[in-house]
Amino acid sequence: MSWLKEVIGTEKAIIAMLHMQPMPGDPYFDKAKGMKWVIEKAREDLDALQEGGVDAIMFSNEYSLPYLTDVKKETVAAMARVIGELQPEIRIPYGVNVLWDPKASLDLAAATDAKFIREIFTGVYASDFGIWDTNCGETVRHQRAIGAENVKLLFNIVPEAAAYLAARDIKQIAKSTVFNCRPDALCVSGLTAGSATDAGILDEVKKTVPDTVVLANTGCRIDTIEKLLQIADGAVVGTTFKYDGKFENQVDRTRVKAFMDVVKKTRS
Rank of each mutant, 00 (worst) to 15 (best):
I222L: 06
N217Y: 11
A232C: 02
L215G: 01
K227G: 07
D233W: 11
I225E: 12
I225C: 00
I231S: 05
K227E: 12
L228Y: 06
D223A: 12
D223S: 10
T218Y: 08
P210I: 03
Q230C: 12
L215A: 08
T208S: 04
P210N: 00
E204H: 13
R221M: 09
C220E: 14
L215F: 05
Q230E: 15
I231E: 01
C220N: 15
E226L: 13
K207A: 15
L215P: 01
C220Y: 08
I231D: 07
T212C: 12
V214K: 02
C220T: 14
C220V: 13
V205D: 03
R221C: 09
D233A: 10
T224N: 11
I222E: 11
K227R: 12
Q230W: 14
E226Q: 13
A232I: 00
G219Y: 00
V209M: 10
T218H: 06
A232W: 01
K207H: 11
P210M: 06
I225K: 00
N217K: 10
D223L: 04
A232L: 02
G219N: 00
A216Q: 02
E204K: 15
D233Y: 13
T208N: 01
A216R: 07
D203V: 14
V209H: 08
L228H: 09
L228W: 05
I225Y: 08
T212W: 06
D203Y: 15
D211N: 11
P210L: 01
N217H: 07
V213S: 01
V209W: 08
Q230M: 13
V213T: 05
L215V: 06
D233R: 11
T218E: 02
V214E: 04
G219M: 01
T218Q: 05
I222K: 07
V205W: 06
K207S: 14
N217G: 11
I225S: 01
V205A: 08
T212Q: 08
L215W: 02
V214R: 03
L229A: 00
I222Y: 07
D233Q: 03
K206V: 09
D223G: 04
I222V: 08
G219T: 09
V213R: 00
D211A: 07
R221K: 10
K206D: 10
D233K: 06
K227N: 13
D223I: 01
R221T: 14
T212R: 03
G219R: 02
P210S: 09
R221I: 12
V213Q: 00
N217Q: 10
L215C: 00
P210K: 02
A216G: 11
I222G: 09
L228S: 14
D203C: 13
K227M: 14
K227S: 13
V214Y: 06
L228V: 11
T212A: 03
K206G: 11
T218N: 05
I231N: 02
D203F: 15
G219W: 01
R221G: 03
D203N: 14
Q230P: 13
A232G: 04
D211E: 10
L215D: 10
E226D: 13
I231T: 11
L229Y: 00
K207V: 10
D211P: 04
T224P: 03
I231V: 13
E226N: 14
D223C: 04
E226F: 09
Q230T: 14
I225R: 07
